[in-house]
Amino acid sequence: MYSQGMVRVARSIIIAVLGVALYIAIVYLAPSPLNIMAAPVATGILVSRSSRHMGSLKAFLLGAAVGISSYLAFLLYTGSLPIVLTISMELAGPLGVISPIIYHGVATGLVSLVAVEVARS
């Protein structure tokens, strides 16, 4: 049969995928700027459900990966990634390119971390 470790990994992957779906759904459906504020919170909490067995760092990294993946998934789906990068670079320099990565990744990761810690306490 499957080891407990394998089950945990599978569970993490499923929750990560669900996290990406939840993230995109909230960003898509909620009005701006509430959408990009609510998505990291809801997704971070969801991701923390699979992270309670992990340490805080791993919870943060999983949350960050889900946040960044959600953002990039949208750009890849629409094929807009290269033009978004070009325009962002022209208009706002490196800050324009990295700010979405930092925002979606760090916000989701931190929420996940906090949720894990709160659940543990």
Binding site: S32, N35, I36, T78, I83, S88, G96, P100
Partner: peptide
């Protein structure tokens, strides 16, 4: 930190077009 980061789109609205993939710049691809 979470509160500070989530406040970025409100405090710096000029970053919103780059942060919001639907209503921001990438959304024009739709």
């Amino acid at each position: 930190l979470v509160v500070i980061i989530l406040a970025v789109p409100v405090v710096f609205p000029a970053l919103l077009p780059f942060l919001d993939p639907i209503n921001g710049l990438p959304g024009a691809a739709l």
